[in-house]
Amino acid sequence: MLGKLVKYDLKAAAKIFILIHAVYMLICFAARFLYMDRLDFSEPSEPLIFSLILFISLITLLVSALSIITCLQVAFRFYRNLFSKEGYLSWTLPVSGPQHLWAKIISGYILMAADCIIIAAGILFLVTGRNVTAAYNTVADELTAELGCSLSTLSLILLAVCLISCISSVIMIYFSVVVGQLFPSHRVLGAVAAYFITNFIIQIISVIFMLVLGFLPGYNTAMLDGKAMMEHMFRLLALSFLLMLVITIAQYIASHYIMKKKINLL
């Protein structure tokens, strides 16, 4: 049953997901051939730097919009399928509450992970023109020494971090939607408020942990050499993952409890 639920969730989301990501990839292709490939890095000038800043800002906006749309898609599918009129069918299927929750976690994760991979693929395509790689090669050694690893390794680490944190993002979205259902007259508003309040609390907890463990205040990363920088980054990542794990488990348990005991489909 779990596989069937996941199948129908993905089927429902597929059309919009494919469409917006296809548009993103088309923009990346166009930007690569019409803009990136025409850049001349041999003589850096002010107009070049200005146009690059503008271009990077636009791509950042595009990537952010894409991620937000995917998150909203995941959230709306969860809400509509379980807590709107569609819930009359979903909740009367011979499927348990945890199966519903797991199906949504799996399908939501697949969409968000695919979003990350497609975004990464688009960016990779943008920056792999001959002129860009040649320009990068001139500063590669210096950059590697500064970072403690090559830019490609760092990018892969960041992608892996994104892929792992998608799980907690999905559960956090569902937790917020479920908490919103506790306010029958303002379900959507309740869910949005729950999302921002939860995020705020997590930020405070993170800062407290960083203070307690000596990451803050005044940890000057600019003074670190490459190796120390990597060690510092991995320590931070380990702390983030630990916190993320605890919070995600707590949110999963809370979502499961609320769905079992408190949900009233009106």
Binding site: K85, G87, Y88, P94, V95, S96
Partner: peptide, 21 residues
């Protein structure tokens, strides 16, 4: 009421409950 009873109960709500697409 649970998974086992949902296998043997066929329910028609008083509203449209299918996804429009």
């Amino acid at each position: 009421p649970g998974t086992a009873t949902k296998k043997i109960v066929s329910y028609l709500p008083d509203c449209s409950y299918f996804s429009d697409h």
